[in-house]
Design a protein around this nucleic acid. Structure first.
Lengths: 143, 143
DNA sequence: GTCCCTGCAAACGTTTTGCAGCAGT
DNA sequence: ACTGCTGCAAAACGTTTGCAGGGAC
């Protein structure tokens, strides 16, 4: 599906900045990016889009379910493409020291978190789970 | 144990602002508070402590393991007293709409998250887990 | 008396917003 | 042509920091 079609399906006009941002997210390796990461990476490819526009577009993409916003660290949001597609649902393991992010999927946790949520009346329509720990690399550092 | 003693044990001078903040955290009902929540609540009790000082003190309390800092929402940190005490470890269920926080403890999740972390080389010294969902109250709202 | 702490105000980084001009349909 | 989008610059937000005066030991 072309970016243009994807945008129309989401009820968004297919404008140049939106197309560029969506295509950038689709082709980039790093799945978890901040608005500024996207801004700088696009600049480096001579794709100029204003930072304010990136924020606005990401918010629209989020509302359309095309993108998920994460708050792993307190100081900035990271955006991830297409994580609400049931088929590739996954959770995140986040290193508290270096910010490294490991995606994972675990059936037991998946089922149990739903049970826990129900136990407390949280009917889960949308859910996300993240575990914060210290990654192997950071463990090795003497401190 | 008096607040003064607790502070000394943590290697912190027992100053008036630190004592006031610690005692406030001990006696307040709401366990998850932002710096500003604390600031305003203390003002309301005629306990004037500068907001910058509250941030500094909370950071010191965190370093001393007296307090845990959470990043449930992207826009502010919430602080919780004494959650690193092994005996009362718990995780959090957070409503994405209203911000309501439900504490819980589940043996299965507890064990499985450790297994998942190990599978990816995240040796967990410190860990915290939160599940974001939609709480019962917010589910009822027609939107 | 020494050193660390506090309060204030200013700085900071991220995100949002007002507005005038421009692009998509 | 009409509407909604974009870019810029300024504002807003939570949080941190520099500094001069004050408090704990």
């Amino acid at each position: 599906m072309s970016s243009t079609t994807a945008l129309r399906k989401a009820g968004l006009k297919a404008t140049l900045p939106r197309i560029k941002i969506l295509e950038f997210l689709e082709k980039t390796e790093e799945r978890h990016l901040s608005a500024e990461d996207i801004y700088k990476a696009m600049l480096a490819e001579n794709e100029e889009v204003g930072l304010a526009t990136i924020y606005r577009v990401l918010t629209q993409f989020e509302a359309a379910g095309m993108v998920v916003r994460h708050h792993f660290e307190g100081d900035r949001s990271l955006f991830e493409l297409g994580a609400n597609n049931g088929a590739n649902h996954h959770d995140h393991l986040v290193c508290e020291r270096c910010g490294r992010i490991q995606e994972f999927f675990d059936e037991v946790i998946e089922n149990t978190q739903i049970k826990v949520a129900e136990r407390f009346g949280f009917k889960i329509v949308d859910h996300s789970l993240h575990i914060q720990g210290i990654c192997a690399d950071c463990q090795q550092e003497t401190d």
